[in-house]
Design a protein around this nucleic acid. Structure first.
Lengths: 202, 202
DNA sequence: TCGTTGATGTCATGGCGTGACATCGGTGCT
DNA sequence: AGCACCGATGTCACGCCATGACATCAACGA
């Protein structure tokens, strides 16, 4: 393996070039040609590293997914699957590549429906594999599915606050707070629409 | 307004043509040209009715979203927001256009990552508006967000069973069962990883 | 009749994504 | 050294997606 002593690889150059250009001109208004030029390669090379234009912002996705799945598999106690999921997410190091980069990435993604679409399916891929991991730990299929998806939403609540905040807050504590909120939200037993207005009146 | 007495409109023809072709050749392997030809229009007309190739399978999305939002706004009692959401979803008539068409639609979507992506963002759009609706009913922002997303996942659990089943099951009852499952999953109070194996041993 | 209007077609264009093949520098083997 | 190989990249050609600008045509109403 050739080890050019230390040039950046094409993939890295493409990633940073893309992020910069998306910030400058917006996602739709920058072409793959421009990204490639700034990274000093051809578009053909771009598509050798990334299957499409959007994917250039999601290079870390695989690493994130496997790490979280591993955390689920390594959880000491799986009798409370929802807690396993929220904890695995809360304890992950979300600032891969630097907090600033992540902030910029998210800003760009949030600004573009197309990228948001991609983000959602990445979440879905994580969810699917977490479900599989829970199943391997003996959790029932339906429980695994619901615990995973709900756990992700609980964590997302915490993450939203954490991302807004000045970094002072602890993600684990915020997740605990979000779990409290969930407890408060779970409805007490009883039929769907407890009473219609008419029934109340009578 | 011209009312051709009753020819199918181009939009309808395009929708059915697309569904058929996606079943026959798969989504990626059918071009917009083919869809347009089968619907006896040009591709330019296709793009006048649908903003892109994927959207042809999501024409009902707007109607669904507004109906569900309306149900949330009309809910008699909003003190249990999660129940409001699950009930609004469970009581919606999901067989718009016929159960068979819906089954085929979902089969095609499930088979194509690209379409799944679009499906997820449609869900997200619904979620965003439901959150807004809850807020208008006086629910706090964070509670609204969490109740909405969790409610959708609870309903999704029920819907999955309903879609698999032979149609005999009642979606409202299944949703109630899913809510029971959620109750069982919400973790009891306590710190994240309750005990590591080592701590248990000591 | 004629002008308007809405739906559709035609044409041109640009970006996305991919297969096939060429090039070129480095590696390892003899 | 010489040679065969290999991985990364470039070049070329192509097809599909999507959109703006403009033309056409049929129905309708004054």
């Amino acid at each position: 393996m050739a080890v050019p002593r230390w040039e950046e690889g094409s993939a890295e150059r493409l990633t940073t070039a893309a992020l910069e250009l998306f910030e400058e001109r917006g996602f739709e208004d920058t072409s793959v040609v421009e990204i490639a030029e700034r990274a000093r390669v051809t578009t053909r090379t771009f598509f050798r590293y990334f299957p499409d234009k959007r994917e250039v912002l999601f290079a870390e996705s695989d690493r994130i997914r496997t790490a979280i799945v591993q955390a689920v598999l390594d959880a000491p106690d799986v009798t409370q699957p929802l807690r396993v999921v929220t904890t695995a997410l809360a304890q992950f190091d979300w600032d891969v590549g630097g907090a600033e980069i992540q902030r910029r990435r998210h800003a760009v993604i949030a600004a573009n429906p197309g990228l948001l679409e991609r983000e959602l399916i990445k979440q879905d891929e994580i969810a699917t594999e977490v479900v599989r991991a829970l199943r391997r730990r003996g959790v029932e299929e339906e429980a695994a599915r619901l615990a995973t998806r709900v756990g992700i939403q609980v964590f997302a609540t915490a993450y939203a606050r954490w991302a807004e905040g000045d970094g002072g807050a602890d993600l684990t504590e915020l997740t605990e707070a979000a779990t409290d909120l969930l407890r408060a939200l779970v409805p007490t037993e009883g039929p769907p629409w407890p009473r219609t207005r008419e029934e109340v009146r009578s």
